[in-house]
């Protein structure tokens, strides 16, 4: 609606440029040709940023389809599937919740990576399995799990104080072999059964 209003105001100014002559007209022109477009673009950019965090946004790229499908695997050992299906992450922001960096400027860093993803989607030559730019940091898991009872009092996590210390220091990955090592695992998707979310 604001876009429509701004377009209308600018079009009106183009049709009647003589209104820019008096002092009040100059001020109005400043509002119409400077402040309103900036306000409109800022609000639109905010909306685009919000949309870019949606699962639908990430899965609209062909390369990401199997990763989206892996969220529906009917196997609780699949880490993303267990999170998605049990509502441990918001379903409409499933990718972003786990694949953003929970650091200062993490969102900006993620967006810059996203630009590279788009370049690869259209000009690159790649196929699954895709690889992360850097090993997955426990920081992203601990953003939610640190302090939660099931994590802090988990039998394996609390079996030895050194294990917990190593997890929190990112020295032992949460996805280490024998722990939560089954992540998207798209290569095994053809052999899997899939959960159908209730409509």
């Amino acid at each position: 609606m604001l876009i429509g209003l701004t377009i209308f105001a600018v079009a009106w100014l183009i049709a009647r440029p003589a209104i820019t002559v008096p002092r009040g007209g100059k001020q109005l022109t400043f509002v119409i040709l400077f402040l309103l477009p900036i306000l409109t673009a800022s609000m639109g950019a905010g909306e685009q940023m919000r949309r870019s965090e949606q699962t639908q946004f990430c899965l609209s790229c062909h390369h990401m389809e199997p990763y989206g499908k892996s969220l529906l695997v009917d196997d609780a050992t699949y880490l993303p599937a267990a999170h998605y299906q049990n509502g441990r992450i918001p379903r409409d922001q499933a990718c972003y919740t786990c694949h953003t960096d929970y650091v200062m400027y993490g969102t900006a860093i993620t967006k810059i990576r996203g630009l590279r993803h788009v370049y690869i989607q259209y000009f690159g030559n790649t196929s699954p399995p895709l690889h992360l730019y850097s090993p997955y940091s426990n920081r992203e898991c601990l953003h939610c799990h640190a302090g939660s009872r099931s994590f802090e009092e988990g039998i394996v996590h609390s079996a030895d104080p050194s294990i917990m210390a190593a997890i929190k220091a990112n020295e032992t990955s949460c996805m280490s072999s024998g722990c939560h090592q089954t992540v998207h695992d798209v290569a095994t998707l053809p052999q899997q059964k899939f959960w159908e979310p209730p409509q």
Binding site: I3, G4, T6, I7, V10, P37, T40, A41, G44, E47, Q48, R51, S52, Q54, Q56, F57, S60, C61, G114, H117, V118, Q121
Partner: peptide
């Protein structure tokens, strides 16, 4: 610019 932005808001796509 505003028209381009309006039409780009109609779809959720990179």
């Amino acid at each position: 610019g505003l028209l381009v932005e309006f039409f780009s808001l109609l779809r959720i796509h990179p």
